[in-house]
Write a protein that binds this DNA or RNA. Structure first.
Lengths: 340, 340
DNA sequence: TAATAAAATCGAACCGGTACCATAAAATCT
DNA sequence: AGATTTTATGGTACCGGTTCGATTTTATTA
């Protein structure tokens, strides 16, 4: 906090009896300085405790060594893992991470894209975008590269990494293979990005010659624990209790399972439950929740790598899209010996 | 990504037929510009799509509108809540958040403090410091204000927010009041900051005229789930199973409980367990874990407020220390009807 | 040793804003 | 209307680095 931070490259230059540019060369390891000069300058730097002002450097070079990650809420258990992976890659490449929560608020999302150049960042990774179409145009005119997590289609000027939309199919397939015959779906609003998970329910049933039953579908207001709890209550109120539930995410699955247990319904014996996301809670909750992993860490790593590469390459190379395949992880919420 | 980002304040000035300084005045809402000039300039800004370059501004003003939060690992369930609270306050005040994981690595911690001025930040909040004494001197010479979470003593030039070290006492008191007579402790290394939680075990027992029994103390290698599992195995191997366990944190408590249940030991009927931290998992795990809340969100909020205030005030005002009181939250892992 | 080539260093413009002083324009007062 | 204040705007140095052409120093060659 000592004010002494005012020692500049000019001070060093004067002290060492050289020009500013020479000092600059040395702190940037530019070849072509006589060893004797170098050591003179290094000594001066040492003596004065000089630390280059990165702002000044950035102003000239236009490299800030920072990238942003815009997510909807770090408290959502999916994100810490993602943020961690991104920060890891960033750090390995000498970048820092700016974390932004947009709370799935379309206005905030827009503001982030529009005001990107006001932030000290070289690029941004964004996900959980609630209103993609509204953002597309702005992304295309963004002042720094954008990397999106989630498939936003073709006409967006951004690298992307996303999962095949097979999570739902994997989950459904698992339930069916296990022997469930009366499968239900519990999810949040269909229009949100996770909403597409609903489609797998219908698709998978028809692909397996099972008749969809709209009474077996519970659509809550969000993708939270609370929705799971409400879904459980709803399913319990049905004339026939489903024997398998495909939950749109693990939070819902966990809430659902807990409520079923409270109602003395056994999981997986009476009802089998599979979730999606494989958040860490799924290993903690009892029974442990079978889940389709969306490869969080992998996704973050790849997004960061794509972004950093884009920052280096600029627009010279074509856009890249990386598609990952989700993976089912079987745990106790679906492991049952008997088949109905 | 369009390169057009080169429109500067000079371009606007030329277009509007005024001086740079006038434009600057307008974008900074400095009073004393004729309305007609203002609108002329605003129009030019609009037409050119001008966005001020914050780097240039920061270089002159030395305000970056960014603060950093250095924690050990965002994946640790305690941190998302904290990071969220900090980001909230930051955002409300027009600041962004830079997130740094130091993994409890003393060298990284030191590097963060020493290279602070190379980051684009106006201040930093730091916690989970593994080697406080090594950092003190560097903190005192830091180039931006530091706010510490955790009590680092007197001779540190930093605002602080920390909890009274009564978590342990609260937890122990609860077990004792509930009727436990053979209480055990499960924790991580005693030298780490959470290690002080052990002391409450001894203290509390003697304060209540109960004899500490060193066989009832399990010290693991860290504060993880794994340690809890190992502790459970250890306690089960004792001639007499404890009737209450005070776990140094919730992760340990959760691991411990799960392993006890696997061993057909009921919680809380056979063994009562209380943790510390009140992480969100404690509400998810079954039975829900009674825990002493360390007021995560509150802590983050206050830290951010202290830091921002310090940034505004500079060194003109005395250091501030805020001490919070932990609070016990009773859940199913300790609610039992019968008393042994 | 002088002429030439290569290497090292200097100097100044520049990045894009801010801030302060000087000046011009408008408003107020005799 | 002319002098005096007040208000609005212009001009420019500055923040602390980088960059690149110009210049000096050193090494090479004749």
């Amino acid at each position: 906090m000592v004010k002494s931070d005012s020692v500049t490259i000019a001070d060093v230059a004067k002290r060492a009896g050289v020009a500013k540019s020479t000092v600059s060369r040395i702190i940037n390891d530019v070849p072509g300085v006589k060893p004797v000069t170098r050591s003179k300058v290094l000594q001066a730097i040492e003596e004065l405790g000089f630390r280059p002002n990165m702002l000044a450097r950035s102003l000239k070079t236009n490299m800030k060594q920072q990238i942003a990650l815009a997510i909807d809420d770090i408290r959502n258990p999916y994100y810490p893992e993602l943020a961690w992976a991104v920060e890891q890659v960033a750090k390995e490449n000498g970048y820092r991470l700016v974390l932004i929560n947009h709370y799935g608020n379309a206005e905030e999302e827009l503001a982030i894209i529009r005001r990107m150049n006001e932030m000290h960042i070289d690029g941004i990774i964004m996900l959980s975008i609630s209103n993609p179409t509204a953002l597309k145009n702005n992304i295309n005119h963004a002042s720094v590269p954008v990397c999106l997590i989630g498939n936003m289609g073709e006409d967006v000027n951004a690298d992307m990494v996303f999962l095949s939309k097979t999570e739902g199919l994997l989950a459904m397939e698992h339930l069916i293979r296990i022997g469930c015959s009366n499968i239900a779906y519990a999810g949040g609003p269909k229009q949100l990005h996770q909403g597409t998970r609903y489609e797998a329910y219908d698709t998978s049933l028809s692909m397996n010659f099972m008749k969809p039953n709209s009474a077996n579908v519970y659509i809550g207001t969000d993708f939270s624990l609370q929705t799971g709890i409400q879904a459980a209550d709803y399913f319990c109120s049905l004339p026939e209790l489903p024997d398998g539930v495909y939950a749109a995410n693990d939070m819902i699955a966990i809430g659902l399972i807990q409520r079923l247990l409270e109602n003395k319904i056994r999981v997986p014996e009476d009802v089998t439950v599979v979730g999606v996301d494989d958040i860490s809670w799924s290993t903690i909750a009892r029974p442990r929740v079978s889940s389709v992993s969306n490869l969080t860490g992998e996704t973050g790593r790849i997004a960061a790598e794509l972004l950093l590469r884009r920052i280096k390459e600029g627009q010279t190379t074509p856009l890249r899209k990386v598609q990952l395949e989700p993976r089912l992880i079987v745990r106790e919420s679906t492991v049952k010996v008997t088949v109905n």
